[in-house]
């Protein structure tokens, strides 16, 4: 194999797909708690909404990962035939993707927190707590 483009793609694809899978699973496993809070314990609609968001998360992130997969620019004009180039290219692509994924994770978390706050604000006001008995 003269140049290492195919090798780069073969390493890049599994790493990125598994990373997305792991992040999405742990995000939405824990996100269920927020959804239950937002929909006030209605399990069915909370799970459905959670699943819809999870599918959206996969689509956006795998789409972005494939979008940045191609090795181009500086490398495409050179031989691209050493392992050093492969490691550096992969580090740049996977590192950039991991930071992007982290930003998407925090965005989702922000949406969960915001939904929870709005849902709590709309809830019926609590009954007034009994105060301490007046003196004498």
């Amino acid at each position: 194999m003269a140049n290492k483009f195919v090798l780069t793609y073969l390493v890049y694809l599994p790493v990125v797909l598994l990373l997305t899978l792991y992040v999405a699973r742990s995000l939405f496993k824990n996100g269920r708690v927020f959804m239950l809070d937002i929909f006030r314990g209605k399990t069915e609609i909370a799970d459905s909404t959670n699943r819809l968001f999870e599918v959206g998360f996969y689509l956006i992130n795998i789409g972005f990962a494939l979008r940045i997969m191609e090795v181009n620019g500086y490398w495409a004009e050179n031989l691209y035939d050493t392992n050093q180039e492969v490691v550096e290219t992969l580090a740049g692509k996977i590192g950039g993707f991991a930071i992007y994924l982290g930003i998407m994770l925090f965005l989702n978390l922000f949406l969960f927190m915001r939904g929870r706050r709005k849902s709590n604000a709309n809830r019926m006001p609590r009954p007034v707590e009994p105060t301490a008995p007046a003196l004498a």
Binding site: L27, N30, V87, T89, A91, G92, A98, G102
Partner: peptide, 29 residues
């Protein structure tokens, strides 16, 4: 329950950002 869920999500975010930055430093060596 809420705190554990939030804490786990924050842990994953911490891994992603730090490991991503480490890889980016390697790319610019």
């Amino acid at each position: 329950v809420l705190v554990d869920a939030l804490n786990n999500i924050l842990l994953v975010g911490c891994y992603l950002v730090n490991l991503g930055y480490i890889a980016l430093v390697m790319a610019a060596w």
